[in-house]
Amino acid sequence: MASKFGIFLLAFYMITAASAAGSIYQNIDLTWGDGRGKILNNGQLLTLSLDKSSGSGFQSKNQYLFGKVDMDLKLVPGNSAGTVTTYYLSSQGATHDEIDLEFLGNVTGQPYTLHTNIFSQGKGGREQQFRLWFDPTTDFHTYSILWNPQSIIISVDGTPVREFKNMQTAGVPYPNNQPMRAYSSLWDAEDWATQGGRVKTDWSKAPFTATYRNYNANACVWTNGQSSCHGSTPVASWMNQQLDATSQKRMQWVQKNYMIYNYCTDFQRFPQGLPVECKA
């Protein structure tokens, strides 16, 4: 006979894995683009496209308050200068929270830039940027956001590239009370995306297309003001997950070799002193 704990654990897995199961149709809604977003292969693939008239986007059907959200993504190939492909979690409103990944297009043969930012209570300005160490257009790569009460960890193919710790005790706002949806979009930002806007979008290469698969949200689903992870339900491992020594070293390797901007080292931007979380 299954133990009471085992039954609780099974119930928790079924709740938090709800977004992981099934096709894209069950987990994602195309929200804008007038047909430029498409769900293909019986719900196994999703594409977003951009032309001179419009981009496109989608959002998750569910909202979450903590979780681990993964997506496989193949970025726009060739000359993608001026385009931005986004993948992020966000709440709504002027004081929204957001965990942001933006992939800035490039001139053919140059590396993509991964732009990351963390918003809490409507305040962002916590940018870190990385050059991807592979060609993200020739195959799918997995981009992950782990968000729990202790920290936010952004990973690429399982390698952590950024950690933002909960430092509320030091007065740093942390996103821990607003449910967020997952979003993605493909849009034109030629005024700033590539080399600060010096390289414009070549519309002769349009439509630009990004491809997605394997949306997977092991998360606390927020419904009618309540989390699926409340009460006596056992806590999943990701709820308390933090970087171990090996993961710390892998993140340090990425930041040493591929980070091209870090707000925590931008003394010109903060002449009166770096933000509190940077000093820590």
Rank of each mutant, 00 (worst) to 15 (best):
D188W: 03
D188Q: 09
D188Y: 03
A189R: 15
A189V: 04
E190S: 10
E190W: 01
E190R: 05
E190Q: 15
D191I: 03
D191P: 02
W192V: 04
W192G: 07
W192D: 12
A193Y: 05
T194R: 07
T194I: 03
Q195Y: 13
G196I: 09
V199M: 05
V199L: 05
V199R: 06
K200P: 07
K200I: 12
K200E: 09
D202T: 15
W203Q: 06
S204A: 10
S204T: 15
S204H: 12
A206H: 02
A206T: 03
A206K: 02
P207V: 04
F208C: 06
T209H: 02
A210Q: 05
A210T: 14
A210H: 03
A210L: 04
T211V: 05
Y212P: 10
N214H: 14
Y215M: 15
N216M: 10
N216E: 01
A217C: 08
A217H: 07
N218E: 13
N218H: 08
A219S: 14
V221N: 02
V221M: 10
W222T: 00
W222R: 10
G225E: 11
Q226W: 04
Q226E: 12
Q226L: 10
Q226V: 11
S227Q: 06
S228M: 08
H230T: 05
H230Q: 07
G231V: 09
G231E: 07
T233P: 00
T233F: 00
P234Y: 02
V235P: 00
V235W: 00
A236R: 15
S237G: 05
W238H: 00
W238Q: 04
W238L: 13
W238M: 12
M239E: 14
M239I: 01
Q241E: 13
Q241S: 11
L243W: 02
L243H: 02
D244C: 02
D244G: 05
D244Q: 09
A245L: 08
A245P: 00
A245G: 03
A245K: 13
A245Q: 14
T246C: 00
T246Y: 03
S247L: 14
S247Q: 14
Q248A: 11
K249S: 15
K249D: 15
K249H: 10
K249P: 05
R250Y: 02
R250M: 10
R250A: 11
R250V: 04
Q252S: 12
Q252K: 06
Q252C: 01
Q252A: 15
W253M: 05
W253T: 15
V254Q: 14
Q255A: 15
K256A: 15
N257R: 12
N257T: 11
N257L: 10
Y258S: 08
Y258Q: 11
Y258R: 00
Y258M: 07
I260R: 11
I260D: 10
Y261I: 02
N262D: 15
C264Y: 11
C264R: 09
C264I: 06
C264A: 11
T265P: 04
F267R: 14
F267Y: 13
R269L: 06
F270Q: 13
F270R: 12
P271F: 13
P271D: 12
P271V: 11
Q272W: 13
G273I: 06
G273K: 08
